[in-house]
Write a protein that binds this DNA or RNA. Structure first.
Length: 630
DNA sequence: GTTGCCTGCCC
DNA sequence: ATTCTGC
DNA sequence: GCAGAATGGGCAGGCAAC
């Protein structure tokens, strides 16, 4: 397959926000792709170079890419930054430069998909001195053969930012559309689907001919027929049944992805062994699963409404997520939320669990504790997560305590078991106290129970609580309403904007990142940046809406100097910023920084002198750890 | 030899 | 991590 | 209701620049 085919698919995907159209285009592409190219194709469609579980990384981001563009197109870094500021996307910069060069350059080899992927793979080679030069050469080599559209996507692939609105959901659905039996009549009325099919694969798609029509009474019947007849076209009694059947087929693929985290393997099984093959795929202790994520609740009331009563509440610990595996040989491995293997970094956790009855998969939070057993701030424990050297030393200095809150595998997969049952397994497996312990939890019958437990959690220096629906299955990688977090709302601070940066992607024409400062003896001391909380679109029903456009215009007259994407401002505009915590900062001039900052509103009534002073920040810093003790 | 920028990944 | 947005 | 794309601070490691 030529890389240009992928590039033109990317162009079409970028041009629409409609999910069905995206799904249709992706499915057309994977349907016509040779089976041995499925792996690179599916990776590149996701904007990845390596599989999720592959520990390799390209090691190239903005700065190295600017060097590569400099080498490839002979343009100075300053000029590249200027164009970056204009387009908000280095891929678009490359495309522009490639266009300008196309007139001078004579021949170009055509790039094929396999070659592009293989070359990108080589970015990860670590070879000490000269590594950056090597990466620059690899990128330059690809760009020298790329037409403008290809250049755009080569750059974005290297940076891991396709910005096409295509994620795992659409690729999952596309695998279904391409390789599995489908109910008739669901998307026929959607013109885009037919469109894409006709355009890119004509009438001879592997699955469109020779279809046997089956009439099914229910969605469950349809799934059975689909399993036994890979070429089936399913006729359901009505649209609702057809949709149910479709959802069942999608869930089958989702299940296979959940347990494998490997799109190419799943696509191959779908193509060669159909639904039965997908259903037979199962969790393998030792292979990581994605973790289930919690939604944030605006209040206790809304949180409880989301999970339903009665429910379970747990402390929300300020540590990091660990998925602990014991395989059939009783070998332990530990994975982070992003499926990084951190077993080597945590020998202490390995010894905590090594005598549990495997095979087993536990979901837990690891928290740092000091000599007295009180919690350490997240910054401390984070020193251990990526450590490669002097690990034994760090194990001695930074002790961890592991709070187990879920069991995903115990005598078989527990994913579809109700949470209540999984939680019972936690209690059977893990003690209440000690270095490895069950997360502190309670049953909530009504709101006042939850409030009392929440107060207790805060008094014990936790971030807040988790609320979990008793009957919910474990949904790897999803952020669903059956699991919510409730955290305190912190007071905001009024701070002055002293610098800003132009945005990227769809926010390229606005200032989108703002450096904040507090006051100290007549000068501004930086305390961090904020770049979220503002809206892209004006909300007519809300007079107070703060948009990127509005703040950009408010700041424009204050611009003193610009360089690349950076903007220096006269410190006049005051904004209210919310945050979770004030931290000691090793980098900001004030000595403090805000954890999870977000913009609340403009304070046009305030002058720079009215912004928070360093003393106020210091007081807020000291004060925050007393919360919940009163 | 030391410092500082860059990257990726925790939150 | 938080937040906003489109389907 | 969910996925995706914007954006935050700080950490270790690794390379380049000094």
């Amino acid at each position: 397959m030529r890389f240009s085919q992928l590039a033109s698919c990317f162009l079409a995907l970028e041009a629409t926000s409609k999910r069905l159209e995206k799904t249709s285009r992706v499915s057309a592409l994977i349907r016509q792709c040779d089976l041995d190219l499925l792996e690179p194709l599916l990776l590149l469609l996701q904007g990845r170079i390596y599989r999720l579980i592959d520990p390799r990384e390209p090691g190239v981001s903005d700065r190295t890419m600017i060097k590569a563009l400099q080498t490839a197109y002979g343009i100075s870094p300053a000029a590249i930054e200027t164009r970056w500021r204009k387009h908000g996307d280095l891929g678009l910069v490359a495309e522009e430069l490639a266009k300008a060069q196309a007139q001078v350059r004579l021949v170009a080899e055509t790039l094929d998909l396999q070659r592009v992927h293989t070359t990108l793979t080589k970015l990860a080679v670590h070879e000490g001195a000269g590594a950056i030069d090597h990466k620059v050469r690899l990128i330059t080599e690809l760009l020298s053969h790329a037409d403008p559209a290809e250049a755009r996507y080569i750059v974005r692939l290297v940076l891991g930012q396709l910005r096409m609105g295509v994620g795992e959901g659409i690729i999952r659905d596309a695998i279904c559309w391409a390789f599995l039996p489908m109910p008739k009549g669901l998307f026929d009325s959607n013109e885009h689907c037919d469109d894409a099919k006709d355009n890119s694969s004509g009438n001879k798609t592997p699955t469109s001919g020779n279809r046997t029509v089956f009439t099914c009474d229910t969605a469950d019947d349809a799934l059975i027929i689909a399993r036994d007849n890979p070429q089936a076209l399913l006729i359901l009694p009505d649209e609702s049944a057809a949709r149910q059947a479709y959802n069942l087929i999608i869930s089958t693929v989702q299940h296979a992805l959940d347990v494998s985290n490997d799109f190419a393997a799943v696509a191959l099984v779908a193509r060669t062994r159909g639904i039965g093959g997908l259903q037979a795929m199962d969790i393998t202790p030792g292979k990581p699963l994605k973790v289930m994520l919690a939604q944030k609740a605006e209040s206790m009331e809304k949180g409880l409404a989301s999970v339903g009563l009665p429910c379970q509440a747990e402390y929300k610990y300020d540590g990091f997520r660990v998925q602990i595996h014991i395989d059939p040989h009783q070998e332990v491995s530990i994975f982070t939320r992003r499926l990084e293997n951190v077993t080597r970094q945590f020998p202490d956790i390995v010894s905590m669990v090594k005598d549990l009855p495997g095979p087993l998969i536990l979901d837990a939070e690891a928290v740092g504790i000091d000599q007295d057993g009180s919690f350490l701030p997240f910054q401390s424990i984070s020193q251990r997560i990526r450590r490669k050297h002097r690990i034994a030393d760090s194990v001695r200095r930074l002790r961890v305590q592991v709070h187990v809150f879920d069991v995903l595998y115990r005598q078989g997969s527990m994913l579809s078991r109700p949470f209540q049952e999984r939680r019972k397994a936690v209690q059977e497996l893990v003690p209440i106290n000690g270095p490895l312990q069950a997360a502190t939890a309670t049953t909530i019958a009504e709101e006042k129970d939850a409030v009392a437990f929440y107060e207790k959690a805060l008094a014990a220096h936790n971030e807040g609580i988790m609320l979990k629906a008793f009957d919910a299955p474990y949904r790897p990688g999803s952020r669903v309403g059956s699991m919510v977090k409730v955290k305190p709302v912190m007071d905001g601070l009024d701070l002055v904007i002293v610098e800003a940066e132009w945005g990227e992607g769809k926010r390229a024409t606005w200032l989108t990142s703002f450096t904040l400062a507090c006051q100290h003896q007549g000068t501004c001391l930086a305390i961090g940046k904020v770049g979220t909380g503002l809206k892209e679109k004006l909300d007519d029903s809300d007079e107070e809406t703060l948009t990127f456009a509005a703040i950009t215009e408010a700041l424009r007259p204050l611009i003193e100097r610009q360089e690349g994407r950076a903007v220096w401002l006269r410190p006049e505009l005051v904004v209210e910023v919310a945050f979770e915590e004030i931290q000691k900062s090793p980098s900001y001039a004030s000595g403090y920084a805000l954890r999870f900052p977000r913009m609340i509103r403009l304070r046009e009534d305030r002058a720079a002198d009215d912004a928070a002073s360093l003393d106020e920040v210091r007081i807020a810093y000291e004060q925050q750890y007393r919360r919940g003790l009163t």
